[in-house]
């Protein structure tokens, strides 16, 4: 009844009996069922005139639009443009973010000094800055990349700080008893412990990098998937709009899955941990 008795039972069933469940009870089957239900409801609503297909489109139309735009070189040029921005913004953002996070995480005074500044900066509505970024960097990739960076940096700083703010007292005591230097404490004890949290942060940061880039694209410029979506929206081509959205989501999902895969490799020990 209580949580303490419910938890082990749940783990047990997930671990040892997960494979013996009937097929249709698998998470994948349930997932597909949910998606199918939503798509069916959408299609039905559009067909029965509960929503206006002109603005809301409908799944079959989106599939058709996908068939139309997927072969165009225009779409792939836009996709390449967006992905480049996302990648550059991501790499710069996480590098800066991890760097700042580790520095702040290893110095308590600096952390206490800078935390309010970071919080204030992070609460700035970034999207409002896009016109300024355009004024600085022109209409190309620049402002979009900068936008992604300003979002990703904060995600990573917060992640790294969270990860490092939970030092394990036992292993710190061990580190001192083994005569570890400050640097060794960081490299051999604190940072490895932070890795799982940081990796989940990397996943989040990727999504935020897309978010920053697309937001900036919608507001400015004419290249990239975000701009393409604005273009279709302005022409009331909801089918095409959703088709681009599907392409975008496919990219984010694929890349996130790739990070998950790397995570599994890197954290092979993590699955043994009960906490």
């Amino acid at each position: 009844m209580s949580i303490s008795t419910a938890t082990p039972t749940k783990q047990l069933s997930a671990k040892s009996f997960g494979n013996s469940l009937p097929r249709w009870k698998s998470p994948l089957a349930i997932r597909i069922l949910i998606i199918a239900l939503i798509l069916a409801a959408w299609e039905l609503s559009a067909n029965n005139g509960w929503v206006d297909p002109l603005f809301a489109s409908r799944p079959t139309d989106v599939v058709q639009a996908l068939g139309n735009i997927l072969p165009t070189s225009q779409l792939w040029a836009d996709a390449g443009y967006t992905l480049t921005e996302v990648a550059i913004g991501y790499v710069i953002g996480i590098t800066l973010g991890v760097l700042i996070g580790v520095i702040l995480g290893s110095s308590r005074i600096l952390r206490e000094a800078c935390q309010p500044i970071l919080n204030a900066l992070n609460s700035v509505p970034r999207i409002a800055l896009v016109p300024l970024f355009v004024a600085w960097l022109g209409l190309g990739m620049g402002p979009r990349i900068l936008m992604a960076v300003t979002v990703v940096v904060f995600v990573m700083v917060t992640t790294v700080l969270t990860a490092m703010s939970q030092p394990d007292r036992d292993s710190m005591l061990l580190a001192r008893s083994l005569g570890a230097s400050r640097r060794e404490q960081l490299v051999k004890f604190e940072l490895p412990r932070a890795v799982p949290v940081v990796i989940s942060g990397l996943e989040l940061a990727l999504i935020y990098s897309f978010l920053g880039v697309i937001a900036a694209e919608i507001v400015s410029g004419s290249n990239g998937l975000g701009s393409r979506m604005t273009y279709y929206a302005n022409l009331f081509q909801a089918d095409n709009f959703f088709a681009v959205l599907v392409v975008l989501t496919a990219f984010t999902t694929l890349l996130t899955a790739a990070i998950r895969r790397i995570e599994k490799r890197l954290l092979h020990w993590h699955k043994f941990e009960d906490r």
Partner: peptide, 12 residues
Amino acid sequence: AMAFARDALLPW
């Protein structure tokens, strides 16, 4: 060398 009540093994 020292050892404590809790093993303090590094899980990774």
